[in-house]
Design a binder for these strands. Structure first.
Length: 480
RNA sequence: GCGAGUGUAGCUCAGCUGGUAGAGCACAACCUUGCCAAGGUUGGGGUCGCGCGUUCGAAUCGCGUCACUCGCUCCA
């Protein structure tokens, strides 16, 4: 596979109505995409398969749909605000990026002296002075664009004075105001992950459903991250859809639960979505690479045309989040275990996957170029295909369109069907191959005599003669 | 965010050193066609990403901007 391959998928997505660039008539909006008529069906199919498998296959997992906007203190508690508010600068020469306070802490005193002089900041030769400098540079970045270079701030990587960019701050979270007036409105954030909505509701869910540990809460919803860079089509976008399941366990049983979910989630991709094992692998986060809340973390990665990329994270978040929310809210968030007769904060095993990434994965996995027959085929499994059947009159005359409409009306009650009478029959088959439609039903003159049609299979191009009232039976038998 | 490259019809692209926009495919109508694309006729569709500038005149040159691709960087 190659990048060329991805380009072809992007082109197919636009051509056939899977994915369009957002705001295209205005020149586009970076890393923002819209899902077209076929795309919305595929996306829904994937999320339905996930939702059904989570909430039906496991009797101790229930669903939730929490709101995108929550009390701002939630993000204080979760660590999202504290961990992402550092002023940064880039050295254009070495192309390295630094936190300004870290960078200044590594400078000789004369550099700090000189900075204080340039900026007229009181110099106490301490960390506070460094903080003052970096905050000042952040607030006045326009005026003092070149202050760092002027003062001779050294790049520890190159050992030379850096060619520094103006100091900027990256905010992961989208911030806005609740209430129509900016003055009186409260500052709120669009959620950067759906998980927190589960944590703050976990006791309400547990009580209302009379759940006992271990139990899980599943949720599908949009999340927003102000990514510094967004690349690779819909792989990393600022607005995206998460499918998360947070599993609450006895702290002593966390390792076992991790093991269980690692296997379950890997199986999901291979058996439920039909992804080839050789395109899937685990990636374990090394200890010094773990997020601030995690004890252990595994990613499931897929072999995309642009390389291996994360499609799901399975993390042991311990009791970090619940304890944080307890601390910040002042409410008791312990779970009472009636069997052990004790109270504790459950450990949380998180399985978190990105719907948009699965969408891209599915397209990459099932995109095929059939060079023998000179056609492009999207070999989507039946359950994922946006349209299941295409109904075609062999010819656009002799009452065949009318008969086809009858067949269409009958079958569309059961399957998502599409009707096509335009062009030669072969062309119509090929058109639908590219859109992933698994079966073609063709009405011909014989149909008028004995009510039988031709069913043509997308992947093998084989044809079968089937009576109209046995079509469902045939398809249900053949579809997987 | 930094660096490099790209941006002409829905798609893939042509358009040499500046002189009033082209092809193939796709799409639509009619004909042809009796089961696997590319047969015929006709037609719709582009202020050449956007803006400013240089010029008598710019798709073609310059600057800016937006978007995409690649590398670096970042990634709760």
């Amino acid at each position: 596979m190659s990048t060329k391959h991805l380009d072809k998928i992007v082109a197919l997505c636009k051509r056939k109505g899977f994915v369009f660039p957002n705001s295209e008539i205005y020149g586009g909006l970076k890393a923002s995409y819209d899902y077209g008529p076929l795309g919305v069906e595929l996306k829904k199919s994937i999320s339905e398969i996930w939702w059904n498998s989570m909430t039906r296959l496991y009797s101790n997992i229930v669903g939730l749909d929490s709101s995108i906007m929550v009390h701002p203190d939630v993000w204080e508690a979760s660590g999202h605000i504290a961990n992402f508010n550092d002023p940064l600068t880039d050295n254009k020469d070495s192309k390295k990026r630094y936190r300004v306070d870290d960078l200044l802490a590594q400078q000789k005193t004369k550099v700090i002296d000189s900075l204080c002089e340039i900026l007229s900041i009181k110099n106490n030769n301490d960390n506070e002075t460094i903080d003052n400098i970096s905050q000042f540079l952040l607030k006045n970045s326009n005026e003092w664009k070149s202050a760092l270079s002027e003062a001779g701030v050294i790049d520890p990587f190159s050992g030379n004075v850096g060619n520094w960019t103006e100091v900027t701050q990256f905010n992961l979270m989208f911030q806005t105001n609740a209430g129509p007036s900016e003055k009186t409105g409260k500052s709120i954030f669009l959620r950067p992950e759906t998980a927190q909505g589960i944590y703050i509701n976990y006791l309400l869910v547990q009580n209302s459903m009379r759940l006992k540990v271990p139990f899980g809460i599943a949720q599908i919803g949009k999340a927003f991250r102000n990514e510094i860079i967004a690349r690779n089509f819909i792989f990393r976008t600022r607005e995206f859809e998460q499918m998360e399941m947070q599993y609450f366990v006895k702290p002593s049983e966390d390792n076992e639960a991790m093991k269980f979910w690692k296997k379950e989630r890997m199986d999901f991709f291979s058996t439920k979505l039909g992804i080839d094992d050789k395109n899937l692998r685990f990636h374990e986060h090394s200890e010094d690479n773990l997020a601030h809340y995690a004890k252990a973390a595994f990613d499931i990665e897929y072999n995309f045309p642009f390389g291996w990329g994360e499609i799901e994270g399975i993390h042991n978040r311990t009791d970090f989040d619940l304890k944080q929310h307890e601390k910040h809210s002042g409410k008791n968030l312990t779970y009472f275990d009636p069997i052990e007769n004790e109270k504790y904060h459950p450990y949380i095993i998180e399985t978190s996957t990105g719907l948009n990434r699965l969408f891209l994965m599915v397209l990459c996995e099932f995109y095929h170029e059939d060079t023998n027959n000179n056609r492009t085929v999207l070999k989507l499994p039946f359950d994922l295909a946006p349209n299941k059947l295409v109904i075609c009159p062999l010819l656009k005359k002799d009452g065949l369109p009318e008969k086809s409409n009858e067949v269409f009306n009958k079958l569309s009650k059961e399957y998502r069907c599409i009707y096509d009478e335009q062009g030669s029959i072969g062309k119509r088959y090929y058109r639908q191959d590219e859109a992933g439609t698994p079966f073609g039903i063709t009405v011909d003159h014989e149909t008028l005599e004995n009510n039988s049609v031709t069913i043509r299979e997308r992947d093998t191009m084989q044809q079968h003669r089937v009576e109209i009232n046995k079509i469902s039976e045939f398809i249900n038998d053949k579809k997987n």
